[in-house]
Design a protein around this nucleic acid. Structure first.
Lengths: 197, 197
DNA sequence: ACCTGAACACCGTTCAAGT
DNA sequence: ACCTGAACACCGTTCAAGT
């Protein structure tokens, strides 16, 4: 409503100060959204986000044209971590170990970060940044799968897309079951993915 | 709005005619809901159902106190078929075959009947009829699992609840992947469920 | 340029008034 | 008894008016 505009008055051009202001507003909206999610409100109504951020609704729409874009902004950090984990896994000497570890990391990420779970569950990213991250993720997983197939530790018909879908499903199963952790289900999946003689 | 009340004027007491009327109204609401779902509208807004059925909103709420109750009414028939399939599977001589066939039937039911998928994905049924059906389902699956364990064709730590959760997850995975059928994923699950030596 | 918030459409839910 | 639909609260989304 009445946040201090004086904070951006330093030695900036008008355009720069507007950008700084805009960036601060954006950060406030993201923080408000995060606060809601942390409080267990997974609905994320944009009107509520606007009010919590002390901002007009239109501003939310200006920054995040769709709810998907907002979700992707919230998930960006977690998604980047998943990509890093996938890159590490693809380079790990023990392929089977790398695969198991990566699936564990992703599952844990989905469990603790609803925005990340939502983004991983949608087929097409809305923003270019997310598209790039998902592309990098797919590339790394592809490398990992190629090695795994070559070593004969995984069924030859499983793609990176399959893995993503199966993980989304696994997370859903964990939710439905109400189990605290998906360790047992993950074990079922890993055994099911093994190459069969 | 103005449906013919004359249809119930035969040789019934007043109470019976009211019941008949009520039953017709109920059937119309269910049909309207089915039509919406068949038309691809999975949202099922109760106001829209009321309008489509030519009925006041309050009437929908009188018959179906919550959306879950409406979903269960829509899913009742499909759920009964699943129960029958489970009973048959539990009695089938070839246990592994019975298990695989049952999972296939359930998955197909979830895929073609969104209401059934929704009901199977909720931990606690709202109505007594659904509770009974789910109870019968669990009992039949338990019998099947006991036999499967005895024959050593399944991991010993898998419960009927696990199976339900894993199937919900599998259906979710199929949806996310956009694949027309879940045959391959089902194969992964079945292999993962096998007893390991 | 960017932000505000009134405005409109829509859905969930309740409840007084009808039959 | 059962049904109707106005009424209220809430959320999505747009856009004229402000700075």
């Amino acid at each position: 409503m009445d946040y201090p505009r004086t904070l951006v008055r330093v030695s900036t051009t008008n355009a720069e100060s507007l950008r700084a202001d805009s960036a601060r507003v954006r950060a406030r909206m993201l923080q408000a959204a995060r606060d809601r999610i942390a409080a267990g409100e997974l609905e994320l109504p944009l009107n509520a986000v606007a009010k919590a951020a002390g901002v007009g609704v239109g501003t939310v729409y200006r920054h995040f044209p769709s709810r998907q874009v907002l979700l992707e902004a919230l998930a960006a950090e977690g998604l980047a971590q998943v990509v890093a984990a996938a890159v590490r896994a693809a380079a790990e000497p023990d392929v089977a170990n790398g695969l198991a570890g990566l699936l564990r990391v992703v599952l844990e990420g989905q469990r603790t970060d609803p925005a990340l779970a939502a983004v991983l569950a949608t087929p097409e990213p809305a923003g270019p940044q997310t598209r790039d991250l998902v592309g990098a993720l797919t590339a790394a997983v592809d490398r990992l799968l190629r090695r795994a197939r070559a070593d004969g530790v995984i069924r030859s018909d499983v793609t990176a897309g399959d893995l993503q879908a199966l993980l989304c499903g696994l997370q859903h199963a964990v939710q439905v079951s109400g189990a605290p952790t998906g360790e047992r289900y993950l074990d079922v999946l890993l055994r099911g993915l093994r190459a069969h003689p």
